[in-house]
Amino acid sequence: MSTEATVSAEASGTPPEPDVARPTSTELLADNEQLPPRQPAGQTPSQTVGPFFGYALPYTGGPQLVPAVRPDAIRLHGTVFDGAGAPIPDALLELWQPDASGALVRRAGSRRRERGDFTGFGRAAVDVEGNYEFVTILPGPIGGSAAHWALLTVFARGLLHHLFTRAYFVERDGAVPSDALLQRLPADRRDTLLAREHQHGRYRFDIHLQGDSETVFLDYPGVGASDGR
């Protein structure tokens, strides 16, 4: 209320009206607008934000499942490429495998390598050129299969979900292992799952996220979807 209106009201003996906030035109419009019924809350969709893998996920000793001086230690290494064939400098890989007898290890301690326990799990961040390396042992065959293989999980930029693949270990001059999964694949696709020994105890396994040499990726129902290739 203005000063003049207050003085006029006092002079006439009428008590002044209190200041009342008037609704704005926007508020009046909102009051008259019919809002749609509220929908039940759902899960937030996956988004490609980051990646931020290098801040917390890598840990000391992550790629070394066993000491490098162990007599039966091997190295699994390679490069992660994008669809254009360029190395990805900020991918992260996890390795899951049985022990040398083929038994699945269910033991904690992957972050306490100094204990010397083999847990069958490793985690490696690639370097700026997209290269990674694990120091581990040759996994034993699982479930009656003659193949030696390990599971790899791939996290990288542009992926809504992490990807699963397998690395089948093939010794120098060795034949392609007999395995139900490999037998279902054409020869050119089968080769993308083979980690070949190129030096004694050193197996190379490159990962191509897309393109003509795209690695075969696997879906595991109930675990989370890859992009289905």
Rank of each mutant, 00 (worst) to 15 (best):
P63K: 11
L76P: 03
S178P: 02
L160R: 11
G83K: 08
F121H: 15
R113H: 10
T60V: 11
L152W: 09
P139Q: 09
D173T: 04
Q64N: 15
S178T: 12
G158S: 06
T165D: 10
V49Q: 06
Q97H: 07
L138Y: 01
E171C: 12
D90C: 09
L138I: 09
A73I: 02
G109M: 07
R123Y: 07
T79S: 03
L93Y: 09
D179P: 01
I74W: 00
A156N: 11
P139M: 06
A124W: 13
S46K: 13
G85E: 02
Q47T: 06
G120A: 08
R107C: 01
A108C: 05
R166V: 05
H77V: 01
P98H: 11
A147G: 12
H162Y: 14
E171N: 15
F169E: 15
P71F: 05
L182K: 01
F164V: 03
G174H: 01
V69Q: 10
G122L: 08
Y59V: 06
A68T: 04
S145W: 02
R113N: 08
D179W: 00
R70D: 05
Q183W: 00
G122I: 00
D90W: 14
L185P: 06
F53I: 08
S46R: 13
V176F: 03
V66Y: 04
L76F: 02
A124S: 10
Q97K: 04
Q183G: 14
P141G: 09
Q47R: 14
L65G: 10
P63R: 13
A73G: 04
V66L: 05
L57V: 13
G140E: 01
H148L: 05
F164W: 08
R184H: 01
V105H: 02
W149C: 09
Y59A: 00
E171R: 13
R111G: 01
P139E: 12
A86R: 15
R189A: 14
F155E: 13
Y59W: 12
L151T: 10
A175Y: 01
F169G: 15
D173H: 11
S110L: 11
A147F: 05
F52Y: 13
H77Q: 14
D72A: 13
A150T: 02
P186Q: 10
D127W: 15
R70E: 07
R115Q: 10
A125R: 15
R166A: 14
F155P: 01
S101T: 14
V69S: 12
G102L: 08
Q64H: 06
P45I: 03
L152D: 08
P87Y: 07
E94R: 15
T119V: 04
R70S: 09
T119G: 06
H161R: 06
G102K: 10
R75G: 03
H162T: 03
L95C: 06
Q97S: 11
A124R: 05
H148K: 04
L159C: 09
R106N: 11
F164H: 14
H148Q: 15
Q97F: 03
P186I: 04
T153M: 13
S46E: 05
S110R: 15
N131A: 12
R111V: 04
L185K: 03
D117F: 07
L181H: 09
P141I: 04
E94K: 15
S110C: 05
G122Y: 07
H162E: 10
E129R: 15
G62A: 03
P186G: 14
